[in-house]
Amino acid sequence: MGSPVAAPREGQDGTGFTGAVTRIVTFWALLGGALLLIVVALNMASVIAGIFGAPLPGDFELTEMGVAVAAFAFLPYCQITGANVTADIFTSGASPRVIAFLSLIGALVALAFSALLIWRMYAGLLDQKAYDYTTAILQVPHWWAFVPILASLGLLALSALASLMQEARRLSPEGKTDE
């Protein structure tokens, strides 16, 4: 499963577009992590309340919603740090330029997919709102969750674009200079 510590790739801590995207995306992932900690606290509270015979109503649905929003917030960070797992078997001997080209294809797929998801999940948000989808116990509207999720997908598209530009630079004759 991926590298445990996703080491930033070269040029990511620099200034310019990639650097800015990396900083925003890292901050966004930390917000997702904070949300995960809130869900942890909620479950702790429910365990403690349960001991006294009064489990918190709606803890299941809030956990589902909270973790889903957090997981979407993690996706851009995965993209920018290259944490999405690949199989290097056939290409381990390939030249850096070939690798850069293949990585560029990967970034292109990520960019296309995030753009598609933004479009479709925006339609999903409108559906959820129009048909009044809510959670069972607390009646929290599901479309609320779609708002931060769409922001996450926007950042995913930005991250994919940054990876794309980086790989394209590596492919260009001048080579590795960043920004």
Binding site: M1, A6, L30, F74, L75, A83
Partner: peptide, 16 residues
């Protein structure tokens, strides 16, 4: 902060 970012990388990868 480091633990949260590692969690983000691993969990995001799993969910995708």
């Amino acid at each position: 902060r480091e633990a949260l970012l590692e969690t983000a990388a691993t969990s995001g990868m799993i969910y995708l």
